[in-house]
Amino acid sequence: MTIATLSSPKIKMSVIGPIVALVVLIIMGALMNPNFLSAGNISNVLSRSAFIGIIAVGMTFVITAGGLDLSVGSMAAFIAGLMILVMNTALPVMGIGIPIVLLGMAVALFAGLFAGMLNGVLITRLGMDAFIVTLGSMGIYRSLVTWLADGGTLSLDFSLRTFYQPVYYGGTLGVSWPIIVFALVVIGGELLMRSTAFGRHCAAIGSNDQVARYSSVRVARVRMLTYVMLGVLVGIATIMYVPRLGSASSATGLLWELEAIAAVIVGGTALKGGFGRVWGTVIGVLILTLIGNILNLTDLVSPYLNGAIQGAIIILAVVLQRGRKPGQ
């Protein structure tokens, strides 16, 4: 037996790259504005990361299994619109109270489940390309929400919104709900990716779906589940999003899909699939949110250049990971 025991003490750039980028950002932010590390600002940043973050956790699984979903942003807008519409409609019957909020949440979860399933069926059962399917559903949901809102904005009834608002602004033990939910999703996702057969199967399918098939893995079902899970997580994100402003329009969730994908990749998941890590995605989301936060907190650069700074940092974070296989 010449097997060496599992030990690789050398530090992998792919692991520490995103962490280094995050730490550098935090130090930069703290130096530039003393309020950056205030409890209020940290809470703000984490709460606003929650939407993209919850979605990005689902996206991590989809991408790890070799897929892609471009529809999440408009799916979120559509679900938010649907949720507001249903809650407003039910208001005269149900009145303000917990049941109507639960109804809204159920609508969001089922709509997410259904939308994810639709993507999944088209991709896995009809064998269509994920890029095209989700590009199509992206357009469909985006115009459905415009149609539902009649070109304008759907607003949750004001008193209902006031009742529902604590779901975004409230919290327990000094931590707001979106942060708690985000944390739970991350912990669950990390566990699922790292320690379950499902996570292992996602990585196997993403690295070589033929090998997975020949190893009796239910390739279509696992792929399908990744899309369904992402849909449900979009529903959860929407449940957190709606009470924030109580409205949905065709501008809701614009470009969320790209932010989520960018967060996943910045976090070290391979875009071509086969390898994914949920904690990395969290780092990626935080990096993306912090860039905007720091730029708002300082006058360092012209606001016209915000996009350029964001792009440069995304590229930098990915460059930092390239210690993995030099020269291959």
Binding site: T196, A197, R200, H201, A203, A204, S207, N208, Q210, V211, A212, R213, Y214, S215, S216, V217, G274, F275
Partner: peptide, 24 residues
């Protein structure tokens, strides 16, 4: 190489891929 083993994964992941239910 293209149907039997995941070349970019370690021995353990490959060994148990077909019978993961026995380990989980």
């Amino acid at each position: 190489k293209t149907r039997g083993l995941l070349l970019t994964k370690g021995l353990r992941e490959n060994l148990t891929l077909q019978s993961l239910h026995k380990f989980s």
